[in-house]
Amino acid sequence: MEIKNASQIFAILGHADRLSVFRLLMRFAPHGQRPTEIALMLGLKQNTLSHHLRDLVSSGLVHVTRQGRALYYAVDLQTAEALVAYLALDVGRARPDLMPVVPVRRTGMLQDKGRSLNVLFICSGNSARSIMAEVLLRDLGAGRFRAFSAGTAPARSPNAAALDVLARNGHDLSGLRSKHLQVFQAADAPQMDFVLTVCDRSAAEDCPPWRGYPIAGHWGLPDPVGNQASPDADHPAFVQTYACLRRKVEAFLALPVTALDQLSLQTRIDAIGVDA
């Protein structure tokens, strides 16, 4: 990246609100978000956000695509990579004492040491989506992974409809409870290898970096509680959520984690969030 281009990007990111928009979109990368959702998450007025998005697009940090009538804004990862490389390798001259230690590892090395990989699923209430994902990975993973779940604003207990759907599919419900994210940020908490958000609200939360720099992914799904039009005994919204999460977990379990480096695995995790 040339110094002229870098200085233009730094000038755009020099505005606190524009930097907040970019940080938010990085949490959803490579997925895009609609302006209405971005404004709601950050508490910005729509007309103010429009100006910030226009500037970010003009800098090349963000690109916009149209899906039907809706516009989706997403981080341009190539430009972001070039900017980080410029800071680290050009400005920083690749000085190791300035670089945070972010290990790019082969995840198979962890399994070779005889322990399962730890996976944390996060949603806002930790009552339905993340609970379902935890149970699915626990039961389908056959000991390869240790599954956990938590919420940014946890409910008092798991949703009854979610538990009913899990039970109907033969899952053990013992020990399930709603927990706050802080439980897994404590010093004595298990170190995570994967942290996967399953709702947009939790992905937008500002939280400190995880110990060990786990692979992060966003598998955003609609809230089945909000989509349940009536207290139908068949729980159709929860059944649909369960089926979608099962496809994603099965795709995750099919990954050759012992043969992929962290960068390749990140790409596969992102793809599951979009496709599965």
Rank of each mutant, 00 (worst) to 15 (best):
M1P: 02
E2H: 13
I3P: 01
A6G: 00
S7F: 11
R18E: 09
L19V: 03
S20L: 08
L24I: 01
F28V: 00
H31Q: 13
R34T: 12
E37Q: 12
M41C: 07
M41K: 09
L44M: 15
K45A: 14
L49S: 05
S50F: 07
L53R: 01
D55Q: 14
L56C: 08
G60W: 04
H63T: 15
V64W: 03
Q67P: 01
A70E: 09
L71T: 05
A74P: 05
Q78L: 13
E81P: 00
E81T: 08
L83D: 02
A85G: 07
L89M: 12
R93E: 14
A94M: 11
R95A: 15
P96L: 12
P100D: 15
V104K: 11
R105C: 01
R106A: 09
G108Y: 03
K113M: 11
S116W: 04
N118A: 15
N118G: 05
N118T: 10
S124H: 13
R129T: 01
S130M: 02
L137R: 08
G143C: 03
R144N: 08
F145M: 03
R146D: 14
R146M: 10
F148M: 11
G151V: 02
A155F: 00
P158L: 02
V165M: 01
H171K: 13
L181Q: 02
Q185V: 05
D188I: 04
A189I: 00
T197P: 05
A203W: 04
A203R: 13
D206V: 13
W210C: 04
P222M: 06
P222I: 10
S230N: 13
P231A: 15
D232W: 08
D232E: 10
A237W: 00
A237Y: 00
V239E: 14
Y242F: 12
R246K: 15
K248M: 14
A251Q: 10
A251L: 11
A259R: 11
S264P: 06
L265V: 04
T267K: 14
I269C: 05
V274F: 14
V274I: 12
